[in-house]
């Protein structure tokens, strides 16, 4: 452990060169690295001096530098759209001092089951900019699913769509300050009693995440009254592992109830 080396690159080329051999761990907030321990790590590349601290919120797109903290993201939306789905999800995640430390890039790379960040990003069709062994812009879902994209590369920026949709983010927790067992995130265009542009994603299930495309197709264009006859089981192909919060079966029941409540809120214009 004493031989562990730290590198402090000051430009992106140097950082890309350092990480591309795949045997050095990038460091952003460090919270997941500390939790995991350093047994398998020989070198660390600190990303804090790289130009990845900016965030830009436009009407139709969002660009988040990988070193932005959860708090930076919440602040960036404060004057523009304080009810944005990213604000709803992040302001209840972890705790105030942790939100000052946890970064966007580290959170996507770590993608824990309790992530409050990845669900909204998936709904916003996020892409990640990578440098290192892989260079270019890749859909977030590919980055999460393909190991070869992650090893030896650094996320420098997260790019997403933005739209004036309503959003809701549900966290299944035992107390306010708890890791969620799973999250459900939903966005929909505001429309009088009719589902429009509905997108739903579950994070923390056995597959790690699942976009509920069948449910979206069944509801989009329909009025809220369709919920009275909807059998949610037909549109919820999601299994949860057993967690401290409860058995997988229990979490599945809770998720279905939470999702129905969220859909009713959207249909009733309460979101």
């Amino acid at each position: 452990m004493e031989q562990l080396n730290w590198y402090y690159p000051e430009d992106l080329n140097e950082a890309a060169r350092l990480v591309s051999d795949g045997d050095k761990a990038p460091h952003s907030g460090g919270t997941a690295l500390i939790r995991k321990g350093f047994r398998k790590i020989k070198s660390i590349v600190d990303l804090s001096r790289l130009p990845m601290h900016d965030i830009e919120v436009q009407r139709d797109r969002i660009e988040i530098g990988a070193m932005c903290s959860y708090d930076d993201i919440i602040r960036a939306f404060r004057s523009v759209d304080p009810g944005h789905v990213l604000v709803q999800s992040l302001k209840n995640s972890a705790s105030t001092p942790l939100r000052n430390r946890i970064t966007a890039g580290g959170s996507v790379a770590a993608f824990p089951a309790w992530s409050d960040f990845v669900g909204p990003l998936l709904l916003l069709d996020a892409k990640v900019d990578l440098i290192g062994r892989e260079t270019g812009t890749f859909p977030l879902s590919n980055y999460l699913n393909r190991r070869e994209l992650r090893a030896g590369s650094i996320i420098t920026r997260i790019l997403t769509e933005n739209f004036p949709h309503k959003g809701l983010h549900y966290r299944e927790t035992r107390t306010h300050v708890d890791y969620p067992a799973f999250t459900i995130t939903l966005t929909a265009a505001p429309a009088d009693g009719v589902f429009k542009g509905l997108r739903v994603v579950v994070v923390g299930n056995k597959e790690r995440f699942r976009r509920l495309t069948e449910l979206e197709a069944a509801l989009n264009g329909k009025t809220g009254s369709i919920l009275d006859s909807l059998n949610i089981d037909d549109f919820f192909p999601v299994d949860f592992p057993d967690r401290k919060h409860g058995s997988g079966e229990y979490l599945g029941h809770v998720a279905r109830i939470a999702l129905m409540d969220m859909l009713k809120m959207i249909a009733g214009g309460q979101a």
Binding site: H27, G30, I34, L98, R101
Partner: peptide
Amino acid sequence: CVVLLNGKLVNSCQVLAAS
């Protein structure tokens, strides 16, 4: 364990000194 690190409230147990 919280401190202000460069003015921001953080948990010092979650910060590696080398960072």
